[in-house]
Simulated scan of single mutants.
Amino acid sequence: MSEGSPAAGAKAFARPRPAWIDHAHERISSADSGFFDRFAPPPDGGRRSSVLILFGPNEAGGEDVVLTERAHTLRTQPGDISFPGGKREPHDASDAAAALRETQEEVGIDPATIEVVAELPDIYLSPRRFVVTPVLAWWREPGHVDDIDPAEVHRAVRAPLADLLDPAARFTVTHPSGYVGPGFEFDGLFVWGFTAGLLSAVLDFGGLTVPWDRSVERPLPDRYQPGGRRDALTQTATEGRA
């Protein structure tokens, strides 16, 4: 069984967060330009939401990241691969609190087992006027990710970074709209758009990225564009913000 599978996430150990996560945060904070600047929100902002980029230790001695496959019955981005998270509610004390609450609701992870490292710069998803705060976090007491809310999540995995960083698992995603962006594949999951761009940026800033062949291109599978639907970053790119 893959260590990234839901059943393999039994809580058995805890480990301090690795230095590369803090290094990623420091480099993002001091960067003059890059991924986060390209998608900075406009002055008038938009509806607030947040996602949790949750890394944790695995039994192989490395780290993994929690990814979810959105429920196939959702009206927006059905079946897309994402980080857990969602809309900030009035009772949420912060964007990080919203991400922790949504993660617990979607995949059953106890917020008490998570260390919030930082709220990263906001990203604007123009089609729906969402201002998304990525929350960088460390799961110091990793456990199962199979306590999902089926109305929101089809399945969740703990994807090992060693697998995601393997050059054989990386490629450039293309779309007839003109979108070009990084892609990952793990356990049958095609990771692209907002999630892949954000994950790739954090891994780059953390100094983990292994050289990969960016000339290897794969078109966006039809299942991710029913009725002509386009991912938020795809539309953003075509509007000239990328």
Results as ranks from 00 to 15, higher is better:
213 D>C: 04
223 R>P: 06
223 R>D: 00
237 A>T: 11
211 P>L: 03
208 L>Q: 04
209 T>N: 06
213 D>K: 08
233 L>W: 12
227 G>D: 06
239 E>M: 13
232 A>I: 05
214 R>A: 14
215 S>C: 08
237 A>Q: 09
242 A>P: 11
242 A>T: 14
206 G>P: 00
209 T>K: 07
208 L>S: 03
226 P>Y: 02
225 Q>E: 15
217 E>R: 08
223 R>N: 05
207 G>R: 02
226 P>I: 06
232 A>K: 07
226 P>V: 02
224 Y>S: 01
219 P>K: 09
206 G>K: 00
235 Q>E: 13
242 A>L: 14
231 D>A: 15
223 R>C: 05
236 T>A: 14
242 A>D: 07
206 G>L: 01
227 G>Q: 03
214 R>W: 13
224 Y>L: 07
224 Y>C: 05
242 A>M: 11
239 E>S: 13
224 Y>M: 03
222 D>H: 11
215 S>E: 11
238 T>K: 10
207 G>Y: 04
211 P>V: 03
236 T>V: 14
208 L>K: 05
237 A>D: 15
221 P>K: 03
209 T>P: 00
234 T>N: 11
228 G>A: 04
237 A>F: 15
209 T>C: 08
222 D>L: 14
216 V>S: 11
230 R>I: 12
217 E>N: 11
212 W>I: 01
208 L>R: 08
207 G>D: 02
214 R>Q: 13
209 T>F: 05
233 L>K: 14
234 T>F: 08
211 P>K: 00
233 L>C: 10
239 E>H: 15
228 G>N: 06
237 A>M: 11
238 T>A: 15
207 G>W: 03
211 P>N: 04
216 V>W: 08
222 D>M: 10
240 G>L: 03
207 G>Q: 01
235 Q>P: 12
213 D>Y: 04
228 G>K: 07
210 V>P: 00
208 L>Y: 02
237 A>N: 09
223 R>G: 06
226 P>G: 05
242 A>E: 06
239 E>I: 09
210 V>Q: 03
220 L>C: 08
238 T>M: 10
233 L>H: 14
224 Y>G: 02
239 E>A: 13
226 P>D: 08
210 V>C: 00
211 P>T: 04
223 R>H: 06
213 D>L: 04
225 Q>R: 09
225 Q>G: 15
230 R>S: 10
228 G>D: 03
219 P>N: 02
234 T>R: 09
240 G>I: 00
214 R>L: 12
212 W>M: 03
234 T>H: 09
235 Q>M: 14
236 T>M: 15
221 P>R: 04
228 G>V: 01
221 P>F: 02
227 G>K: 06
